[in-house]
């Protein structure tokens, strides 16, 4: 290891070399012209911006190669602004680079550590100050102070309580009940089992009284995907098979991973894909996870038909739909 004694000597700061503009009046003149030109370009940009704002109509379009049809108002407004700002900056920098004095200066650094005297004086001051409190002797004050400070921290937290309702069982509830009709989304039309052909997929919602004004928090839990397969394509347990109707199977459309809408149904492979994190579910195996980060199959809705042949739910979901949460109690 080379010690500092063996280090190369510091050649010191290089001698300041004058720039062309420092010694050659013509170069100086040229630099000045360049700076002025940049300032003029900036002024032009501002003018372009003002012109575009007032005189270019907002529905004027212009074809620009590579970029395609562009809104002329937006484009020239932006280009004007960009020029106005950019060239103003460039002018200032060029001015500084070429014409302002460019001698480098040296500052010295100081050590950040305070002197020993200062430190001792500080310690003394603090000791005296804290000593004046005599906390050790004033037991009554000490105890009550701790109690008051501890309680003092609670109200601010408590005051935030009304930010929202308590969750209760809300996450486990949907608008699906025994006998709820399945209606198309959008459209709110009831669906006959015979309306679906093999290979069809329909997004449905539960029929509710006021179907025109569903709260988004309902739409975050209620959507169901209705898929029709050939019944022999199912690989289901008898219980799960009983929840289907004539090849029609219904799953929650809300991903069991993070709640995105799982809706990419591949008709040939019978796979459902979530576009957010690519969890893939096999419809023939009761939406078993076959790829991706989701840990649970999509909840299956028990469906049947009413006397007129319209699809209805036979029972509500038997588990919470959507992403997991701490209180969730099911596999």
């Amino acid at each position: 290891m080379s010690s500092e004694l063996e280090a190369f000597a510091d050649p010191g700061l290089p001698v300041h070399a004058p720039r062309a503009a420092d010694v050659d009046p013509r170069a100086e003149k040229r630099a000045e012209q360049q700076v002025a030109l940049l300032f003029w370009l900036s002024a032009f940009g501002s003018a372009l911006l003002i012109y575009s704002y007032i005189w270019i109509p907002e529905d004027a379009f212009i074809f620009i190669p590579v970029m395609g049809d562009q809104n002329a108002h937006q484009l020239f407004l932006g280009l004007g602004m960009a020029m106005s700002l950019f060239f103003l900056g460039m002018a200032a920098v060029l001015w500084a680079k070429k014409l302002m004095p460019d001698t480098e200066m040296v500052n010295h650094r100081h050590e950040f550590r305070s002197s020993d005297e200062d430190r001792e004086a500080l310690i003394k001051t603090v000791k005296e100050g804290v000593g004046g409190l005599k906390l050790g002797r004033r037991r009554l004050i000490k105890g009550s102070l701790l109690a008051s400070l501890g309680l003092f921290a609670l109200p601010p937290v408590l005051l935030l309580r009304d930010l929202g309702p308590l969750p209760g069982k809300d996450l486990e509830k949907t608008n699906w009940k025994a006998g709820t009709q399945l209606v198309t989304d959008p459209g709110n039309r009831p669906i006959l089992a015979s309306d679906l052909e093999v290979g069809s997929v329909v997004q449905v919602l539960p029929a509710v009284a006021d179907s025109a004004h569903r709260p988004l928090s309902d739409i975050a839990k209620d959507p169901v995907l209705l898929i029709r397969l050939r019944p022999e394509e199912f690989k289901l347990t008898p219980e799960r098979l009983a929840m289907t109707h004539d090849g029609i199977i219904a799953f929650s459309k809300i991903c069991s991973h993070m709640g995105c809408a799982v809706a990419l149904y591949e008709q040939q492979t019978k796979h459902l894909l979530c576009p957010c994190h690519q969890s893939t579910f096999d419809v023939t195996q009761a939406a078993k996870v076959i790829f991706g980060p989701s840990a649970r199959p999509l909840p299956q809705l028990d469906i049947t038909v009413d006397e007129k042949g319209y699809l209805i739910a036979r029972a509500p979901f038997n588990e919470a739909v959507g992403p997991s949460f701490w209180e969730r109690n099911s596999q």
């Binding site: 103003l88 900056g89 920098v93």
Partner: peptide, 9 residues
Amino acid sequence: GGFFFIVFG
């Protein structure tokens, strides 16, 4: 200062 305008531009 100039660089601010350049970044903005």
